[in-house]
Simulated assay, not measured.
Amino acid sequence: MTEVDIRYRKPARLGDDLIVISTVDAVRAASVDIHQRVIRGTEQLTDARVTAAYLDSDGRPQRQPKDWVERFNRITTGK
């Protein structure tokens, strides 16, 4: 129940100063969609969409704790 779709646009080099920008696009009961970009200066090196699932100890999806959902929702709405 997880997925990563990543587009590599340009390579990074050892010693490059990189910035990773992550934004939460959607929050569901057992998962969250995150958009991630890697930037070097003004160049965007990667663009990724990640779906991360909250799993129980047996590896099965389960509802995220309420406080997690609230925190992700605050990030999404900016409140």
Rank of each mutant, 00 (worst) to 15 (best):
I6M: 09
V50H: 04
V50R: 00
A48I: 04
K79A: 15
F72A: 03
I34D: 02
R40N: 05
S57T: 05
A26W: 03
E43D: 15
W68Q: 12
I21V: 14
G78M: 02
G15H: 07
Q36N: 11
H35M: 06
T51S: 04
N73R: 04
R13N: 03
R37P: 05
A12E: 07
I6W: 12
Q64T: 08
V32W: 00
E70C: 01
S22Y: 01
D47P: 06
R49C: 11
I6T: 09
R28K: 13
D47C: 05
A29P: 04
W68Y: 13
T46G: 04
T2N: 01
P61A: 13
E70V: 05
L55H: 06
F72E: 09
F72H: 07
H35K: 09
D47M: 06
V50C: 09
T23R: 07
T42Q: 09
R37F: 11
G41T: 05
I21W: 11
P11I: 10
E70S: 06
G15S: 09
L55Y: 11
P61V: 07
V24L: 05
R28N: 15
R60N: 08
R71L: 02
H35N: 13
V27M: 12
N73S: 09
D16G: 10
L14V: 09
A52C: 02
Q64P: 08
I34M: 02
A26H: 07
R9H: 12
P65F: 01
I75M: 14
A30N: 13
R60C: 02
V27C: 11
L14E: 07
A30C: 11
T76D: 02
R71Y: 15
T51G: 00
A48F: 11
T46Y: 12
S57P: 00
I19Y: 10
D47L: 03
D47N: 13
Q62E: 14
V50G: 02
A48H: 13
D67T: 10
R49V: 10
R13S: 06
G59T: 04
N73E: 15
P65E: 07
A29G: 07
A26P: 05
Q64K: 02
D17L: 15
I75L: 14
R40Y: 00
H35C: 08
I34H: 03
D33H: 10
R9W: 06
M1K: 06
S57N: 07
L45D: 06
P61N: 12
R7T: 12
D47K: 08
D33G: 08
R49P: 05
Y54M: 04
A30Q: 11
N73C: 04
L18M: 14
T76Y: 10
I19E: 14
V69S: 12
I75K: 05
W68C: 05
D67M: 03
T51P: 01
R63P: 10
E43Y: 02
D17H: 15
K10D: 10
G15V: 11
R37A: 03
L55T: 04
R7I: 12
I75H: 09
G15I: 10
V32I: 12
A52M: 06
I6A: 12
G78P: 00
T76A: 12
T2R: 01
T46I: 07
